[in-house]
Design a protein around this nucleic acid. Sequence first.
RNA 1: GGCCCCAUCGUCUAAUGGCUUAGGACAUCGCUCUUUCAAGGCGAAAAGACGAGUUCGAUUCUCGUUGGGGCCA
Length: 469
Amino acid sequence: MVRVRIAPSPTGAIHVGLIRSALYNWLFARHHQGKFILRIEDTDPTRSTAESAQAILDGFRLVGIDWDEGPFFQSQRFDIYRKYAQRLLAEKKAYYCYCPPEKLEIERQIAWQQKRIWQYDRRCLKLSPEEKEKLDALNQPKAIRFLVPFKKVVFEDLIHGRIEKAPQDIEDFIIIRADGTPTYNFAVVVDDALMEITHVIRAVEHIANTPKQILLYEALGFPIPKFAHLPLILGPDRKKLSKRHGALSLFEYQKAGILPDALINFLALLGWSPGGDREILTREEMIKEFSLERVNKSNAIFDYKKLEWMNSEYIKKYPTEKLYDLILPFLKEIGVKEFNPEHLLKIIELVKVRSRTLVEMANMAKPFLTDEITYDEEAVKKYLTDSARKYLGLLCERFQTLTDFSAVNLESTLRKLADELKIKAAELVHPCRVALTGKSVGPPLFETIELIGKEKVLARLKSVSLMNH
RNA sequence: GGCCCCAUCGUCUAAUGGCUUAGGACAUCGCUCUUUCAAGGCGAAAAGACGAGUUCGAUUCUCGUUGGGGCCA
């Protein structure tokens, strides 16, 4: 039985890297009919917040990643870590270290500057019982350090293949800090073992920690899971994706009008591919096709343009009724308060094919729903010339006489006027669009006019034709 | 500083020891449809970091260099 997990730290916004890791674990679990476990790694009380933990749960729900067990909180499991640390202490596989971390850090810095190798020299292991008693009497803070056995560590990474670590490259590392909190490497091993995780699928930055963890599994007598290390997601500057790159939290994508389905599809393909030319995949297809063997080794740059394209594909594919529900918050955001549901459905139908995001869609729908038009300066300059405004005045008069305000009728009326004025239809069409929507681009004009409605159309044409430069 | 990981078009990627003029997608550019367009259709340009070796043959296997990334309470 496959058991995998995602173990985020609740220390800030939900990074797309986290979503991607969660997604791959989830796909792997679903593919193998295994269990997907959620564990919150909140061992650092100064940086972890309950809000952030809640945001992670909400975020996973938003993108449709569901978990079978948990959430478990590491902060509630400190006793468990201490118990296992005590066991290692009792078995002489670990020892107390009284060295102040700041002091060791300085030593390390100096060694680096002098280009010397620095490793902890086990000075506290050599302490006599009397010396320890003395330090304890002084209430000297003490951490617990793992006594690293001198042996080569080898493991078979499911993505990277065989990885080896020479014994001299692993120093005795801390497992419990002086304040009693466990370090990442220790807590993760105890938890993964106790939760019977079979496959540890996580970002490649943990590959260097894995040999240490394997040593801990062995020291604790736990079975060793399989490991798979995922490539990183980088920003456009090839640096690890971070806050500097602008939008990166899940909720920012949500605000930008990116659909969760599109984000998931995009992220699935960032580091994995089903083979062949397929790009748009349903979750069922992803689950069916997913395998760690097909995950890439190399880091991938996050391409927002491609995400937008994929989003537009999903918008086109979505039924209009579904988009109706999705666009409401975005309309509210830009001040559209009331509308007729039937009317809005028609507008969405017209506008969805050219919307890359829900934000774009809402903005494109706005001129249909309110009288608040934001005129694009360049479009006005280019199309609303003196002569064009004169023509629009004439067009307004013609439209006024129409009883059947339908696209077909509007088109023939406009063309007829163009003929009479001996100008190209385009010379009316472009100015008309700008007058009605404020933009030079948009859906087909005559449908647009019809859906904006006679009253609004006449008012806008009139006001533009009377406008002074 | 030590150790580890990675390397195909600008970006995401596919296939492969010869079948390959290295395939697709995004972005870019051109043409086309259209009243316009960020939509549709057609098309163009665009890649295996570098240097050795193994081999009849290497983008594919090995080593090195370079570059990038990561870890070290």
